[in-house]
């Protein structure tokens, strides 16, 4: 038995399936329903039913393979037409179920696809030196060591809070500036330093939906951020993962 894994839904391109390979090593196919074209793959049921996927989510290596394959097919699928990526692990029994879903949600898909038409998603991470300034070493007064301990601790606490507050303010300001030259913006949680592998602290992890003919302006805004001394990391272009959500409040 096999199942149908859904990668993306796009407008048009009904004769050009992505080459793949997909999440199960398969060649992606298309399910066409009116103007909507779903990019799907036939996958083995024993590997992709609910229980198998639940197990897969326990396995980092498998998650990575799935996510990368899913992502790669979507990148390919989104090259030419407006495309709405689907979240990892959206699985149907058969093509008919996919087609029925496309019929039932045609209006929503239409709206989402229009929104991302001629736009691409760009990820922006901003790092700044957020090390709190060196503690002011108060001379340890030998007569009241307990008091000086507490005061030292209080200074640590306040410095930490101030540093966090500063970082937040920087992030808000940068995000605001970039959002002004974007069609949409979405803030994500700054990644842990262990992930980024950087000494500097990530203060902004955001992603923006940018008009393809507005990318110059967006780049100029990024350069302005860098001119202020921040380190900017740009990723993309991404298919509009963060801006093609439907059916959610």
């Amino acid at each position: 038995m096999s199942l149908v894994w859904l990668y993306a839904v796009r407008l048009g391109g009904a004769d050009r399936p992505p080459a793949g390979p997909g999440v199960d090593g398969e060649s992606p196919r298309l399910v066409v329903e009116g103007p909507l074209v779903a990019v799907v793959g036939t996958v083995r049921e024993e590997e992709f039913d609910e229980a198998a996927l639940a197990r897969a989510m326990e396995d980092l290596a498998r998650i990575e393979r799935l996510a990368r394959a899913h992502h790669a097919v979507i990148v390919e699928a989104a090259a030419a037409e407006p495309t709405a990526p689907l979240r990892l692990a959206t699985v149907y029994r058969d093509d008919e179920a996919v087609a029925r879903m496309l019929r039932e949600r045609a209006v929503e898909f239409g709206a989402v696809l229009e929104r991302v038409r001629d736009r691409r998603e760009w990820g922006v991470k901003v790092y700044v030196d957020a090390k709190p300034e060196a503690p002011v070493e108060a001379p340890a007064s030998s007569d009241r060591p307990g008091t000086s301990y507490l005061l030292r601790r209080r200074a640590d606490r306040d410095r930490g809070a101030q540093a966090r507050e500063r970082a937040r303010a920087v992030a808000d300001r940068l995000d605001e500036g970039l959002a002004q030259v974007a069609a949409g913006s979405h803030r994500m949680k700054p990644q842990d330093a262990r992930l980024s592998g950087r000494e500097q602290e990530m203060v902004l992890n955001a992603t923006y939906l940018v008009d393809t003919d507005g990318e110059d302006e967006f780049r100029a805004a990024l350069a302005a951020v860098e001119a202020e001394g921040a380190t900017v990391e740009l990723t993309g272009p991404w298919p509009p993962f963060s801006f093609a959500t439907l059916g959610e409040s």
Partner: peptide
């Protein structure tokens, strides 16, 4: 990098329930 991808493919994108209850993944 993987984190960038997962941020997007797990959390974003169109969310539709298939006819298998894949949304259990969230709970997993």
């Amino acid at each position: 990098n993987l984190a960038d991808i997962l941020e997007r493919v797990l959390d974003k994108g169109i969310v539709i329930a298939g006819d298998i209850r894949v949304n259990l993944l969230d709970i997993e």
